[in-house]
Every structure is written in structure tokens, then in C-alpha cells.
Amino acid sequence: MAEIVGAYFTSHVPAIGGAIARGDQGDPYWKPFFDGFPKVREWLNEVKPDVAITFSNDHGLNFFLDKMPTFAVGAAEQYTNADEGWGLPTYKPMQGFPELSWHIINNLVEDEFDPVSCQEMLVDHALSIPFELAWPDADAWPVRVVPIGINTVQHPLPSAKRCLALGRSVHKAVTSWQGNERIVVIGTGGLSHQLDGERAGFINKDYDAFCMDSLASDPDAMTRDSIHEIVRLAGTQGVEILNWIAARGALGPAAREIHRNYHIPISNTAAATMVLEAA
């Protein structure tokens, strides 16, 4: 039976890609953030996943406002990155795992979720940067990918409660999968930040601490606020915490924290990195 080896969570700020491209990991501005990653890499090297189920949001590369799915599950043989318009390098393609994708899609629908299935899907920095951070020297990614997209761009967004339930349903699907893969769950984005409006630059250290403290032990605590209140507390883009909440659900019922790093600011964002294992 397939095993979920754990979950890795990180911010995915585009500027991180710029820092990697320039080799600025040791620069005083960037070091406190990149210092969070040797532990992640060491852990990945120990647990050796060969599949990643990921939760992230598109930022206007694959989805436009003509069609904006609340939940989207990739079911492609391969996922490529492309020019996002703000000068990042184009990242390596990711190999898909369509059989597992369809198993998850079938089980989600059976479980009364209604995802959009995508046999073609571009992946943006929200996946590529977490992969670059996790496996910086890889010639090809060591994992096949099932990418799950959550709309955090255009309101109404799915509730935090719904995102946690989605993740739990993905977990349930994995438990009935007959393969013997080693699966890492990845949740990306956040933590608190706001790019737009007169409140641009808003960060909320206390709310971030609440989220990080709740993630392993009590993820339901993060689902009690409405989307409106989460935006108030986390910022308009801090609502990407929904990706973390869904990923936490996919990890399984009980979890323990094995790593945490938090630093303010990276670009306009409170940057965080965590690793959890099933308990």
C-alpha cells in the first residue's frame, strides 16, 4: 500500500526564484529564509518520496478569469512551466501520474466534491519554487506529481472548512490506492501578506503563529474563521493558507511537527516553511 511519508509546506514568493537565479541564498536578506531548507532536504533524503500530491493556487498562468475553477486536479502526463511575465526563469517540467490523478478525481467525486479535471495544465511558481527549494541540485524532479489547484484569486473562495475536507478526502483516496508509492504532500503559499490596496504590506505575526501552532495538532481551529475574516487576519493574498489547510487534511488525521522556519519579510510576505509527519 502507498505510504504518505509526510507533508512539506512553504511560501512560494516569486522573488525567491530571483534570489535562486542570482545565487543570493547566503545574502543577509535571504539567508534567514534559505536557512530553513537544509532540514527539509535532509528529511526528504531520509523519507525518499517518489510522488508528490500538491496544493497550490494559480496566479494567472494556467487559469484566467474566463474559467476559474474552485478546485482543479491535474491529470496530465507532464506539467510544464512557462513565462509568467515578471522575469522568472522557466522551470523544469514535472512528470505527472495520471493513474493516481484519476483515482483521486474518481474518489473526490464519489465523496461529493466536484473538481475540474485538467489533462493539460501549466504549473506556475507556486509549485516550481517549492520544488527548487526542496531539490536544488536535481537534474529532474525525483517525484511524479498530482497537482491540485485551489482558487484563492477570485471571490467567492472555498471556505477553510471545505478545503480541509477536500484534503481529507484526498487522504481517503490515497488509502484505497493499490500502489506502493511513497507520497509527500506539499502545501504552498502564504503566510500573511497583502499586495494590493492601501493596506499593501500588511503582515500579521500573531495570526501566522496561530496557524503554524494549529497545523499539526488542531487544523480544525484554522477553519472557524470565514474567508472574509481570514483575509482580515492574513491579508488578501495570505488567504493562500487555504493550500496549507488542504494539504494538512491530506496528510491524515494525526500529525506531529518536525520542522519550522519563519521569517519577516521576504518581499511583502511573512515567509514560513514547515515539515509534518503523520503521528
Binding site: 494590493d196 493596506r199 482580515r232 488578501t236
Partner: peptide
């Protein structure tokens, strides 16, 4: 101050424009 920009629960969020329908 930016720290004061959370407002009151249930009220509009200061300096924030939700991208809705």
C-alpha cells in the same frame, strides 16, 4: 498604523478591496 488595519470582525477590512464577481 498598519497594525491597526485589521478593523472589526464582520465589518469591511480597512484598505482592502476583495476581488469578487
Amino acid at each position: 498604523t498598519i497594525a491597526g488595519m485589521t478593523g472589526e470582525a464582520g465589518q469591511p477590512i480597512p484598505g482592502t478591496h476583495l476581488f469578487d464577481g
